[in-house]
Write a protein that binds this DNA or RNA. Structure first.
Lengths: 253, 253
DNA sequence: CGTTAGTTTGACCTGTATCAAAGCAGGTGG
DNA sequence: CCACCTGCTTTGATACAGGTCAAACTAACG
């Protein structure tokens, strides 16, 4: 079970891995974050963490699970505008656009308001963190642009490969993916809502990718036998500035 | 000529209108911006202001014309990820994702690095401006999410109406649109690259909208006879926090 | 076991792309 | 002043990617 959060992977671990740019953060740089961990919360799959014009919790860190920022329209069409994975931040300070936030799988979050405070600290003590935040925001905006390109100009086939490569890259960084393999506990409906496709077509696209030997998908688990080749086929450009941890630990059951 | 920049509309005017949230800025709030206007630059239509991995100028303010942030892929497909209109900012500090920036029409920009500096000023003297910047960033992110929804879940017909409504709203704010009428000097190819459609289909979509009495398009000029009805047809939600100037001055030829 | 949520398959339809060519300016040079 | 570009828009004919509908299959779960 590659993707299960190892017992040892504390929120602080996640944070340091996730925000390792521009240079490695040290624990001190993140505002005695450990203490806030008391406010951990669990969310069952499907739970709404906050809604566009209702409840708006402060800054939180995803500790486990997949979470989506989603826009739903009057006639039921839905579009997921962003996927949040462990190590990502959630809340108005991080992504201020109006949308619903829902857990796609059962998930856990912990309070991270200390990080928002630290960022505003005038003393310069948290400059490394401020820098890391800014770099992460820049990356975020780049990923949104990627998403726009995906939806606007890529075929279904390319979109799917492109998304899987992005997720692999991001999961890799926080130690939740092995070499070309990762746990993807999303329904095909969720994938459809990310990619702007119908469920049926998502299914067929995955089969096509498998036939071409580029993606080995089965519900819950993805393998990318040849990421290079897939990237070429999907016009995927890995994001500069994303450094993978020296070694993604293998994980005990 | 509704959209021509009136002689009286200085960059400072634009700026105050554009960043009027959360409350009206006063000229002092924007860092003696007027002085920087010496570094005005003109860009012919089609000019590249900066490229993804090459030349990266500092923060600049669009004084006139339409400018696009665009991603081009190896096989020639292009996607415009953002449109910049007068009053908008340009450059790494504002939108840090890697992309080319090109002028869609002849355009003018002026240096605005003073604004980036002011934002970082620790003295609290520029807090109103800092606030305005943050609000504008939030709006920007919301617009990107809108764009994602447009491309992912709206039909060509809806996309077009949605985009025109957004542009109307934004142009209105900086005094470049009258009641439902504005100058739109974009080729249908540019529209196609924004909306993720083919040129031909853009053309047909515009005709359909005209037949339905929702949009009156002719090259260079757009009229929206019934914005309410159009918004309903395209699932457009006007953005909260965008206040139009008390009165968009009529403009002497 | 039956129920339920998710995946898979098949048949068919439609929105949008593609290709090709014809209008329609506005600008240049003879 | 006309003839000719050249860039943009418009139209028609045709092809295909992806959507929709409906039903069968699978597996987890009480």
């Amino acid at each position: 079970m590659i993707n299960a959060l190892r017992p040892g992977a504390t929120p602080l671990d996640l944070l340091l891995r996730r925000f390792c740019v521009p240079r490695r953060l040290r624990p001190d740089d993140v505002a005695r974050f450990g203490e806030a961990t008391t406010d951990a919360q669990s969310h069952p799959a499907g739970a709404e963490l906050s809604s566009a014009d209702g409840h708006r919790p402060g800054l939180r860190l995803v500790a486990s699970g997949f979470i989506a920022e989603v826009r739903t329209m009057s006639d039921g069409r839905r579009q997921i505008t962003a996927l949040r994975i462990p190590g990502d931040l959630l809340g108005d300070e991080w992504s201020p656009q109006p949308c619903d936030v829902i857990a796609l799988t059962s998930a856990q979050t912990v309070d991270a308001s200390a990080l928002a405070t630290a960022r505003k600290d005038p003393s310069g003590r948290f400059d490394p963190w401020r820098q890391a935040w800014a770099a992460a925001q820049a990356e975020e905006e780049g990923r949104m642009a990627d998403h726009i390109v995906r939806l606007g100009r890529l075929t279904a086939y390319e979109r799917m490969g492109h998304l899987l490569l992005e997720l692999h890259e991001r999961l890799m960084r926080v130690g939740l993916a092995g070499d070309g393999v990762f746990h993807l506990p999303l329904t095909q409906e969720a994938l459809a809502d990310v990619l702007g496709l119908s469920i049926v077509h998502v299914n067929r696209t995955l089969q096509q990718l498998r036939k071409d030997g580029l993606v080995n998908y089965r519900p819950g688990q993805v393998a990318l036998p040849d990421p290079q080749k897939l990237a070429a086929a999907c016009l995927y450009a890995p994001r500069a500035g994303v450094r993978h941890p020296a070694r993604a630990e293998t994980c005990g059951s």
